[in-house]
Amino acid sequence: MKATQCFFQDGEHKWLAIVRDPERPDALIDTNEYLVAYNGAGLLLDPGGAEVFPAVFSALSAEFDPAALAGLFASHQDPDIISSLALWLEFNPKLPCYVSWLWASFIPHFGGSAESFVSIPDEGMEINLNGLPLQAVPAHYLHSSGNFHLYDARARVLFSGDVGAALLPSKTDGLFVENFDAHIRHAEAFHRRWMGSNEAKRAWCERVSRLSIDMLCPQHGAIYQGPDVERFINWFDGLRVGVAVG
């Protein structure tokens, strides 16, 4: 069973992480799903694959009414991000899914129709969650060619999709990065291989350096907080990516 942990709260404004499923089959990569909740409405970020839908849905239900979901946000098109879409739409056929325009006709292969999607233009857009402005921040080619992160300026939280992801050993289950140097070793190979463009990486580092970020939340692994956020951005900036042997 996945656990739901609230890691930011200011009154009715919350960020929840749905993480670490001990019953997850080994063949599936572990994923983090996040919920931003504001004044009773919620936006679910990278809701996950079809196989983990029961675990995510039941964990979410323990802390938040799924009927109050105002939408889904998919950072990109991968199966571990959004292949559960059809199941969420069975629950609520009117749930909009925010995703890069690039994938609006690919993701319906997982389910949904043209009406199910709100296409995000390349330059990003503001998403209003019941009065809370959220910013879809461009992160193209990191790793997907149409890729967005989500920034909550009031909470100073950046959901960073696959950027910052770490493939942690099975017994490492903390929500936050505790030792940056030890942690980043589990992120290095992933970033070298999955992030395809040094130019895009540079642009992203410059873009997010201008934001005030207390927590950087990736879709795999642990959350970076405090000084580790800047450490990560600097580390990523200096990393040569797009490298594969062969």
Binding site: M1, P54, S58
Partner: peptide, 20 residues
Amino acid sequence: LSGVIHKAVSDVSVLLQDQR
């Protein structure tokens, strides 16, 4: 009751997966 309801939510989700 919380334990039973949590299990029931999960079981209905699994059934939804099956039906799809």
